[in-house]
Design a protein around this nucleic acid. Structure first.
Length: 119
DNA sequence: AGTATGACGTTTT
DNA sequence: AAAAACGCCATAC
């Protein structure tokens, strides 16, 4: 249960007014390929363990919950913290993504990735 | 030891 | 832009 505990701790450490992606949490927890685990953990434990589940979104900056099954509430909870999303549930990651202290900044990584895809 | 789950991510149509 | 096709993997049972 080591991985899962790390995941929960990480999710709890996302500050108000910021978001993290599933892949980001997985990576910080030690397995960059385990993004799906994050959704599993959220699905099973976010109520029970009172996790700030609404601060976790997908790598495109979007809300993954379907409309009518959580989408609206997540959007509302984020809005309440100052994180705005468009009608389709997209958040500007460059502005709102959490950058944990001491780790390579997601903003920098996005920048480098964009340079690569230019060629 | 399989098999199912799950709010994912990247690449390819 | 959007959807399908893949790949991915810790847990529960």
């Amino acid at each position: 249960m080591e991985f899962e505990d790390k995941v929960k701790g990480l999710i709890r450490s996302i500050p108000r007014g910021r978001v993290a992606t599933y892949a980001q949490i997985a990576s910080l927890a030690g397995n960059y390929r385990a993004a799906r685990q994050i959704s599993r953990v959220l699905h099973t434990s976010s109520d029970k363990d009172r996790l700030p589940w609404h601060r976790v979104i997908n790598s495109r900056g979007g809300i993954s919950l379907p409309r009518g099954r959580g989408f609206e509430e997540q959007k509302r909870l984020l809005k309440r913290e100052g994180v705005c999303s468009d009608r389709r549930g997209r958040v500007d990651l460059a502005r709102f993504q959490w950058e944990p202290p001491g780790s390579p900044s997601p903003a920098a990584r996005r920048f480098l990735r964009r340079l690569i895809s230019e060629t």
